[in-house]
């Protein structure tokens, strides 16, 4: 079973490294920060996040589930990964 805290940390770290240049902004990022509606990740760049999750957790997220809403916060992403990893 996936450890939720570890999963959250991994996604948070990835988002910081992948999308944020400014250290101050990276420090301010929390699991509830809106990523797409907040303008941090644009919907097109979201693809690299999807590829990362699929590779790291050996899952396949169908395009219809990889919506900007489902990817909008780290916590939502965690939920999504758990759903496909554990069938929840």
């Amino acid at each position: 079973m996936l450890d939720e805290k570890q999963l959250q940390d991994a996604v948070l770290t990835y988002v910081k490294n992948e999308y944020i240049d400014d250290e101050e902004e990276a420090d301010e990022l929390t699991p509830e920060t809106p990523l797409i509606s907040g303008g941090i990740v644009d919907s097109f760049s979201m693809v690299s996040l999807k590829v990362f999750l699929e590779k790291k957790y050996a899952i396949k997220i169908p395009d219809e589930d990889a919506t900007p809403t489902a990817f909008d916060t780290v916590n939502k992403i965690v939920k999504l990964v758990k759903r496909f990893k554990e069938g929840k």
């Binding site: 992948e18 999308y19 240049d21 097109f44 760049s45 693809v47 690299s48 590829v51």
Partner: peptide
């Protein structure tokens, strides 16, 4: 360019602006 990329079957990835 984004529109053209969307129209094509190739996989897509991106990098931070000029990084």
């Amino acid at each position: 360019l984004i529109d053209g990329i969307r129209l094509c079957k190739a996989q897509y990835d991106s990098f931070k602006h000029m990084n």
